[in-house]
Design a protein around this nucleic acid. Structure first.
Length: 862
RNA sequence: GGGCGCGUAGCUCAGCGGUAGAGCACUACGUUCACACCGUAGGGGUCACAGGUUCGAACCCUGUCGCGCCCACCA
């Protein structure tokens, strides 16, 4: 065997192992194996937005720990990796890095900048993930903006379009005025802020007034009706009459509707196009006119057709003056201006401060508008029941995370808008015909023509003059929702780049992801798989929690508590950081606890030293072990303590395997670590030391010890390897023969099998009693305040409690007499029915044995 | 407003029907030839609170309080 360095230096071995794993193809999926062994993971492609977060370390490592177990336990793991490098997050990164605005340049120019900026940020991820030792198949690395990804994304589009599940509609849409694009319901965030509820008087035709309350007076121009609850005291008097909007002079009907909350504001509310989702509802159900006053930039429109038949006004001239005064103002400025005008005219009444929750675009933070533009929608509202049904067929880990999915689906109010008025994404594969007779007809490419960019390419048989290209691109989720299909390279029977692959790989075994993207990534991926093939994309989904800062708060730049993952790895080493992530169960948020990281570091050191203790005698006395079970059956391992240790190890393997199969890797780690630290290091190694110190050829009990040390060490290395890949690979290497070639400890099928170990609990009673005796000796010496190596003159053990028989105690002492005497520094040990009254004594830890002793003379000072 | 999770030793967490656990921190002892990034021994908890079920509850049920999150509301 190789020389064993006294100190472990992870930084020194890291690069070497990363290279070895790569060149060994250690983590490549083997297509030649039978499909039953497949274990396919739908890895999240991290969004290329410029930041590496500890959250990445946390959730990707948890997925990797499971992937490594699955591989070692014999599965043929397909663990792809990719980068989500298109869409708004990437555009925002490029805009920031290059200090430009995408909207101010041509698409070609901007895309060129993106292609320039992206690679360096993908390198950051590559470095981080490589260093974390993610056992992904790097040969399957993909980008969501690549030709093939665009092809598959556009296939997805075409398939849904042909199935009538994707359609272009002109209707009210959630709109981000800062990024100037439509967005989807999933991209809506909320902020709470102080607002003002303004009471504004509308004149009633024929006399009187009605007072409404609004936080958005700038929308008065878009008012189409006043709404009042049927039970409102003034309902009988007002319903059926018309009110005149202030400033604009527009006559609007007063309508009763139970959706009005009589408790809020004045109990009378104006319906505008559009202030919120309720306005859309009223607009539709009451057939109200469409009166948009805000443009795509979130500014007041420059002109409105006031005074026309559709948009009458009792004083069009005054109304136009108002429009002119407001034109081009952003909504906040317009609000102030309108309030001033209302006050001037004496129709602004009471004003109340109020906490309001404002929907904003999650990426830009800008308050949303609802405007009417043509967009492409994937139908989801009609499929809520099926989506919930599919969610129930899926195994969620932890199970309660299903609730988040269901409440999201139940709360859906919008179909999924996938078109974005941006530059850097997968283009919608669509043209609109200008040919006489078919103007406006939608033209799509064939599968063979993909990928297409309608702004450059033409549909077959058409000239540039005959089509209008669709300039929108897909939402980033519209592409990343087909990550499973990126791997199977198939959308449906009609749209496939690799027939047969889909049948084999779907549904995938597992989707690992964090919980904050259940409503986006998980939801959208399920929508796509349902629509494309009527199936689930995966059998199970593993939801990781959040990584919180040491103070228990969410990490955020504004709080200044963000930890750089690279610094974390530098300080503690990859294995210690992985240990930390491995102690936390799926779904649980975890604080970044320095203690746990230190614990991981300690574990690595302890594992190193324990392996070193085994290595020293094994290097000097080469053995040719079989399996632990065979060596026991052959009598090579015969010492009761060795048999006991391997029986305990077998129990640990069993418990860890059961836990791992249930995705309870944190419990598996506790099982393994508990055995390693307590049973193995603190007790067995102390007891076996006597038999590792010898000159010349080993005798039978020394041979037994050597074999046991070999089996225990190499097994522990394998058990720890999903958590601590670097130190375990290094140790496995040190235990190989000089001439043996590299074979990674992480290889498929390298997980310890119960069949190779004795039955769990072999010689358990003997082991337990020996531990009791040893523990009692330690306690007695501790009570006397002397060193554990203080010589003992007389040592007597006797049964205590009812569970210990004199015979069993005798057997245990005979089984390990020499080891006990050596550890206790006693010249002999006797078993007596009851403890001699004249000796100092102590009860063992489990109170099964009473240990009595007298100390010997102090050793003669040299 | 509805839902989910959590509330166990100073800290981070495990246990989820049968005599309260781990690591860190703390105290005492010990430089034992794998490891002082060590070892041994020890102190420390009315398991948020209140009812209930049970021979027995940290664990099951009901309610309350606190923290976090998800969804909804958002005039």
């Amino acid at each position: 065997m190789k020389d064993f360095p006294s100190k472990y230096d992870q930084a020194a071995v890291e690069t070497g192992w990363r290279k070895a794993w790569a060149s060994d193809d250690a983590f490549r999926w083997d297509a030649s194996l039978p499909a039953e062994l497949d274990y396919v993971i739908d890895t999240p492609p991290p969004t290329v937005s410029g930041t590496l977060h500890v959250g990445h370390v946390y959730s990707y490592t948890q997925a990797d720990i499971m992937a490594r177990f699955m591989r070692m336990s014999g599965r043929n793991v397909l663990y792809p990796i990719g980068w989500d490098d298109n869409g708004l997050p990437t555009e925002r990164l490029v805009e920031k890095v290059k200090k430009v605005r995408g909207g101010t340049m041509s698409r070609e120019e901007f895309v060129a900048l993106c292609r320039e900026v992206i690679p360096q940020y993908e390198d950051q991820f590559r470095d981080l993930f490589g260093r974390l030792a993610l056992s992904v198949d790097w040969s399957r690395e993909y980008q969501t903006i690549s030709d093939e990804s665009r092809t598959i994304s556009q296939m997805s589009f075409l398939d849904l379009y042909k199935k009538g599940l994707l359609e272009r509609r002109l209707e009210p849409t959630l709109w981000d005025p800062a990024d100037r694009t439509a967005i989807a319901q999933a991209e809506v965030d909320e902020i709470e802020r102080e607002g003002t509820l303004n009471e504004v008087a509308f004149a009633i035709e024929g006399g009187g007034e009605a007072i409404i309350a609004t936080t958005r007076p700038e929308l008065i121009g878009g008012c189409g009706a006043l709404m009042i609850h049927p039970d409102h005291p003034r309902a009988g008097e007002l319903v059926g009459k018309r009110a005149i909007s202030p400033l604009y002079g527009v006559p609007v009907p007063i309508i009763a509707d139970a959706k009005v909350d009589p408790e809020k504001g004045t109990g009378i509310v104006m319906c505008c196009t559009f202030g919120d989702v309720t306005d859309i509802h009223w607009w539709r159900t009451h057939g109200l006119p469409l009166r948009l006053v805000i443009d795509q930039a979130g500014k007041m429109k420059e002109s409105l057709p006031l005074g026309s038949a559709e948009w009458p006004s009792v004083d069009a001239e005054a109304a136009h003056a108002v429009v002119e005064a407001l034109q081009g103002l952003k909504v906040e400025k317009a609000r102030e201006a309108v309030l001033a005008m209302l006050a001037e005219r004496g129709v602004l009444r009471e004003r109340h401060k109020t906490r309001q929750v404002v929907p904003v675009a999650e990426r830009s933070g800008a308050p949303l508008e609802i405007i009417v533009t043509p967009q492409w929608f994937i139908r989801t509202l009609d499929f809520k029941d099926q989506l919930i049904e599919k969610g129930r067929e899926l195994v969620w880990r932890p199970d309660y995370m299903r609730q988040r999915y269901e409440s999201w689906v139940e709360g859906l109010k919008w179909d999924w808008s996938i078109s974005r008025q941006r530059h850097f994404g997968v283009p919608l594969p669509v043209w609109y015909s200008r040919r006489p007779g078919e103007e406006g007809t939608i033209i799509v490419p064939t599968a063979a023509e993909l990928p297409v960019d309608p702004s450059r390419d033409l549909p077959a048989g058409y000239t540039a003059d005959e089509v209008i290209p669709e300039m929108d691109v897909m939402d980033t989720w519209a592409t990343s929702s087909v990550t499973p299909q990126f791997v199977s390279r198939t959308i449906s029977d009609e749209f496939s780049l690799d027939e047969g692959a889909h049948k084999r790989l779907f549904p995938m075994a597992m989707r690992p992801q964090a919980h904050e993207i259940i409503r986006t990534w998980a939801f959208y991926t399920i929508v796509k798989a349902l629509h494309h093939q009527g199936e689930l994309p995966w059998k199970s989904i593993s939801i990781s929690g959040w990584c919180l800062a040491s103070d228990g708060a969410k990490m955020s730049k504004s709080k200044g508590n963000v930890i750089d993952p690279i610094k974390l790895l530098d300080e503690y080493g990859t294995d210690a950081v992985r240990y930390w992530t491995g102690t936390s169960r799926l779904g649980n948020d975890t604080v970044l606890a320095p203690n746990t990281l230190k614990q991981g570091k300690r574990l690595v050191t302890k594992l190193w030293n324990a392996a070193r203790l085994a290595h020293l005698p094994l290097a000097a006395n080469p053995i040719t072990p079989s399996t632990a079970r065979a060596d026991i059956e052959a009598g090579v391992i015969a010492h009761p303590l060795d048999r006991w240790l391997l029986g305990e190890l077998a129990a640990t393997i069993e418990a860890a395997t059961v836990a791992f199969e249930a995705y309870e890797y944190a419990q598996a780690l506790r099982e393994i670590e508990g055995f390693f630290w307590k049973t193995y290091c603190d007790n067995y190694l102390e007891l076996v030391k006597r038999r590792t110190r010898f000159e010349g050829a080993p005798d039978a009990e020394q041979v037994s010890a050597l074999h046991t040390l070999h089996h225990a060490t190499t097994t522990l290395i394998r058990l720890f390897s999903p958590f601590l890949p670097y130190v375990c690979e290094t140790l496995a290497d040190l235990f190989r023969g000089e001439g043996d070639g590299f074979a990674t400890v992480h290889a498929r099928g390298n997980w310890p099998l119960a069949a190779d170990y004795p039955e769990a609990g072999l010689d358990g009673e003997t082991g337990a009693l020996v531990l009791e005796i040893v523990g009692g000796v330690r306690k007695a010496k501790s009570d006397l305040g002397v060193s554990l190596v203080a010589p003992v003159e007389r040592l007597v053990v006797s049964p205590a409690g009812e569970g210990t028989s004199l015979g069993a105690l005798r057997d245990a002492v005979e089984a390990a007499r020499a080891d006990i005497e050596e550890l206790a520094k006693a010249p002999g040990v006797t078993v007596e029915e009851s403890a001699p009254a004249d000796l100092a004594s102590a009860l063992s830890p489990d109170e099964r044995v009473r240990v009595s002793l007298t100390l010997g003379p102090a050793p003669v000072q040299a």
